[in-house]
Design a protein around this nucleic acid. Sequence first.
DNA 1: TCGTAGAGTGTTTTT
DNA 2: CACTCTACGA
Length: 798
Amino acid sequence: MEIHPPSAPAPVSDPSSVPAGSLLRGLNPEQYEAVTLPHVPALILAGAGSGKTRVLTTRIAWLLQTGQMSPGGVMAVTFTNKAAKEMLTRLSAMLPVNVRGMWIGTFHGLCNRFLRAHWKVAGLPQAFQILDSSDQLSAVKRVIKGMNLDEERFVPKQVSWFIAGAKEDGKRPGDVAIHDGQTQKLVEIYQAYEDQCQREGVVDFAELMLRTYELMRDNAPLREHYQRRFGHILVDEFQDTNRLQYAWLKMFAGPQCSVLAVGDDDQSIYAFRGAQVGNMADFEREFRVQHIIKLERNYRSCGNILDAANHLIGHNSRRLGKNLRTEAGPGEPVRVQESASDYSEAQWILEEAQQLHRQGMARREIAILYRSNAQSRVIESALFNAGIPYRVYGGLRFFERAEVKHALAYLRLIENCNDDTSYLRVVNFPTRGIGARTLEQLQDAARSSGRSLWQSVGAVGGKGGGNLVAFNQLIDSMRNETRGLTLREIIEVMLQRSGLVDFYRTEKEGADRIENLEELVNAAEAFVTQEGFGKDAVALPVDELAPGSMAEGLPRAVAAVDLKPDAETGEIMSPLAAFLTHAALEAGDNQAQAGQDAIQLMTVHSAKGLEFDAVFITGLEEGLFPHENSANEPDGLEEERRLMYVAITRARQRLYLSFSQTRMLHGQTRYHIKSRFFDELPETALKWLTPRTQGFGSGFARDYQAAWQRGSGLQSMVGAGQQPYRTPAPPPPMPTRSPTEVGGQRFKAGMSVFHTKFGEGVIVTLEGSGTEARAQVNFGRHGPKWLALSVAKLTIVE
DNA sequence: TCGTAGAGTGTTTTT
DNA sequence: CACTCTACGA
């Protein structure tokens, strides 16, 4: 793929002559050009730390300020709520503009907004609810059970993934190509799942996108309306868009629309969940993009860090081609540390981090990154034992916690009693004498009549049946009691009447949970205040409703806005329904202690978009980073390299790369060699804190052997004369598992071997011992393979 | 209905 | 190792 220079160099006036107070003040020439582009499609290749958010927001502000666009005519779409919020905040700081009328949000958030306005033509109930991924999973499980299918053959997670994947390819059950019986059945499950969702009035994340896309595609007046409306569409993180999102954008972008796509192919790290980097090239071609601007000036990292990043990513093929540069000096070298074990690695990190902190660096400016979540544990325990405050990203977020989900389920039932997922979640929680047997009967009755669980309670007799009726009455009475109350009051009533609070009061670990339930009340309160639901505000976009808005004049027959206000209050959407939507679309933070100054721990994926003064990239070992599983996927290694690129470019001043010789993984000690990425970094930018073990690959095993024979074990390899790390327990006696003992042969990582079937290859990883011993061998044409050494016939190639 | 022992599992993840 | 899920017995 190649990049054409802008056909006509844009007539950029000298950005340095921009008057004080102007929006455009302080932009560099490329940024300036991007912000002031004419009304045509354009692609901005924005490198890490090149000021892309600034360009996006300044462009919107500029379009509005110069009167080229009214707020209603702009759409800006992002992937995360955080990015959307950031954009809104910055924008309102630049201009006094009513951001509520603007279409700025996540793909899913905008779809929700669209479907709330057009629920009727979209074929949805007005109070449709959104399933998060765990809701979706349990819905899929129910479908599989209901079809009497084997959960071994149809693993709910995989089925769920299949359905989401199909939707993200724009495919309904009828559109999926069927090659075999398995696919046939999967499609049947997909169909049944769809029917179930439709019956219950719920949509999953992918459905929000697909439903919106289809409605735009099939409803010409609606499409024309929106296409006329949006003169400018700006897309953030374009490299992360999937097929459906791309098609969605094309649907909203009419002939008069100028789409500005901002992205960085080198930071595409979500191919595994359907992101198509190829969308960038497709966009360039299909939108006949004339203006491609590269933002390569980096304002974040110092020279050595950028050298490392550029050098590394240079090993990828199929790039759009971009190099980061800085006007800051080279700065400090990139420090490299080798440790004997994951434990001593953690120990070293914490001491180094403490050192930085003592020198005045805030803890929140120090990030510890790893490839996979499992790696955080050792580091966490080291920090915990040392009493150093830290914060782990990832894990359960607020709205995903069990007690919060229970509470939300009650609220959802108040809003829509046909929501079977919520019904099943709380019908017997707290326990009400409704057991598996009773629910079995209820589900059978519901299935055979095609009705919801709620509607089927009458069909179940006996004691269980009576309890079910009582449960329905409980929900009914909650609905009646809360009518007309504020959101806060509704939740308080629900918490009491449902018995949730009482239940957790008697639990031994219930205090935290009650605290979270109280937090839910606060979240609701904050939501009402922020979104203005307290008074007469409605959830629908103001510009869709106001007379004189662009929606006015649209043929009523196609229902631009399907208004159906509450008969009593006149509310278009109840605060409760709005809050439930909010809870589904924005899972919230994962920690309450977010304010504290703490060291930040996270995966490389979740670090994307963030920056820190000091960054530790840990576990840089073959098999971990690059991850062994990526070797099986096409372009897997390139994605791992981009991931590494993302990790490197998070650092402002100081970057540490660290790897360990041994690591506890899944309860087993594994022996690793250092990541191949070290060979792809410029020597001149690196500074080894530990002596280099030469000749990597075979080096480790040989040095280990030598060190062991000297009677000093691994510790002697970690550089005597260094800080007294007090490496704890001596390393596991390697000889029992020694790679050199494996299979009775002298295999070592890095060694060339010959296999009768796969030919010549190089040993990447060795693990296990005796008959368990296995090796990952990289065979040129056949790629990497895991081999059981007791079985595979390998000979050493000299 | 509920608690617990045993098996199974184990990249990355926002919405 | 640490967690989730299932099956079984009280």
